[in-house]
Simulated assay, not measured.
Amino acid sequence: MITVLDYGSGNIAAIANLLRLSNLPHAVVQTPDGLSEANHIILPGVGAFDNTMASFRRSGVEAALHERTQAGAALLGICVGMQVLAEASDEGTEPGLNLVPGRVRRFDPQTIDCPSKVPHMGWNAIKPTGPHPLLEGIDLERGFYFLHSYYFDCADAGHALAVTEHGRPFHCAVGNGRVFGVQFHPEKSHDNGVRLFQNFMSL
């Protein structure tokens, strides 16, 4: 079963609907106790890095996520849910979960080809850095739907699973052990989103 963490920030209904269409059993939980037996956890996220981390710490979710990942549960962060896997972010001052070493950085309009395109929004192809079961069977040219102004910069290139282009290459999927993050929105990416969730469940 996939456990979707609802902490008040994320497109929970769309994720749950896609999991249902994918015939993947799932449950939506709102407390640390709801994660106690979880083996596959989806961590959605919409909004600001600091607000998300503050919410985690108030609710006890941060400790619960660390406990489950240390116990071997697979974790998939989506959008801001991916960004909080990092050590820190240019968006704020709160430390992240530090489950994938790296820092979240803001797109600099001065260093990309299309300065008017921040935030990065729309469909983009992705390019895996190598074979990985999370991305198996994905239509890479069609890619995924993105909406963000910040991106994950891995400290270790070995943790980057895929890159995409927005004026310059950036890491759009990361992984460290059984902890994964994707900057794009699978729940808005039709067949590729379905396949990604199915792949995640099989890990």
Rank of each mutant, 00 (worst) to 15 (best):
S55A: 07
N51T: 11
G158S: 08
M201P: 09
F180N: 02
I126F: 08
G10D: 14
A157V: 05
A155S: 13
L43W: 00
L76C: 04
V29K: 10
I112S: 15
T129L: 03
L35D: 01
L203R: 02
R20G: 03
P109A: 11
W123Q: 00
I126R: 03
L5P: 06
E37M: 12
Y145F: 05
V28Y: 02
P95N: 04
F170L: 07
L5I: 13
N124I: 02
F184W: 11
Y145H: 13
V100T: 02
P186M: 12
S149A: 07
S22A: 15
I42L: 02
F146I: 02
D50H: 01
L161F: 10
I138L: 02
Y150K: 06
M82H: 04
G34Y: 14
F144A: 15
D50S: 00
A38Y: 10
H120Q: 04
P25E: 08
A173S: 11
D6A: 15
E87H: 14
A14P: 00
F146M: 03
A13Q: 09
A38F: 02
F49M: 13
G60M: 01
L76S: 08
F184I: 06
I78L: 09
R20S: 14
N124T: 10
I2K: 12
P109D: 01
P169V: 04
V4P: 14
D33P: 09
L21S: 00
A74L: 05
I112R: 13
V80D: 13
G177C: 05
M1H: 15
L203V: 07
P101M: 04
M201R: 14
E87W: 13
F56M: 06
G77V: 00
G34I: 09
T31M: 03
G96P: 01
M121W: 06
G45R: 15
A74E: 05
E91C: 00
S9K: 14
P115Y: 11
G34D: 06
P119T: 14
P115G: 02
R20T: 07
L21F: 09
T111C: 02
V61K: 12
L76W: 05
H159E: 07
V4W: 09
F144V: 10
L75A: 03
G92C: 00
